[in-house]
């Protein structure tokens, strides 16, 4: 996993839970590098799992809620990084274009990054159905990103997601519905 995710996660923890909480979960996670991450490095995904697990234990919050909050934070960072990409866009367009965003904005900096994929299954004015395909179980984090985007554009949406394994591939089916 890219070091940028770790440093973003640290920023999110400091921002939401406080720097002492960050100290604690680093301590709890018992990381090999004592939690010294740099955005340009690459680290085992298991270390992120250990940090999130520690955070869940310390806060007592459900894992889904922790991941979703982190997802929203991530979206805020992206908007700050490439505001033009999200300016005057429709929410469904943004979600349908996540793969393009990965390829154009992320891949150029992190050519070897393991990025999730969002493929459009169906779309109309009100509802968008996406297939979330990732080697990591971070569907809740993805949901947080989408919520962050909706909030950024001032939209209210309902999100439903469930894992699907149809024999040929395993993915998470996301259904987004505009509420207003």
């Amino acid at each position: 996993m890219k070091g940028l995710v770790f440093t973003t996660f640290y920023a999110h923890c400091e921002d939401v839970y406080g720097v002492e909480m960050l100290d604690d979960i680093i301590e709890d996670a018992d990381l090999p590098n004592k939690g010294a991450y740099t955005s340009v490095g690459t680290y085992p995904f298991q270390e992120m799992v250990a940090l999130i697990t520690a955070l869940v234990r310390r806060t007592g919050l459900p894992l889904a809620q922790v991941l979703e909050a982190f997802g929203r934070f991530c979206f805020g960072k992206w908007v700050a990084y490439v505001p033009a990409h999200f300016k005057d866009k429709d929410l469904f367009d943004i979600m349908s274009g996540i793969d393009d965003f990965h390829e154009h904005e992320v891949r150029k900096l992190y050519p070897d990054a393991e990025l999730p994929s969002f493929k459009v299954e169906s779309r109309d004015e009100r509802t968008l159905v996406l297939r979330y395909i990732s080697c990591k179980p971070l569907a809740d984090l993805a949901a947080g990103v989408i919520r962050g985007a909706a909030a950024h554009l001032g939209e209210t949406i309902e999100i439903k997601h469930r894992p699907v394994a149809d024999g040929t591939e395993a993915y998470v089916r996301f259904e987004f519905t505009r509420l207003a």
């Binding site: 406080g18 720097v19 002492e20 007592g60 919050l61």
Partner: peptide, 15 residues
């Protein structure tokens, strides 16, 4: 949409 309030968790830290 919902937002987690950070404050309760700041107090939960041993710091």
């Amino acid at each position: 949409n919902s937002h987690a309030s950070p404050d309760p968790w700041r107090s939960a830290s041993s710091a």
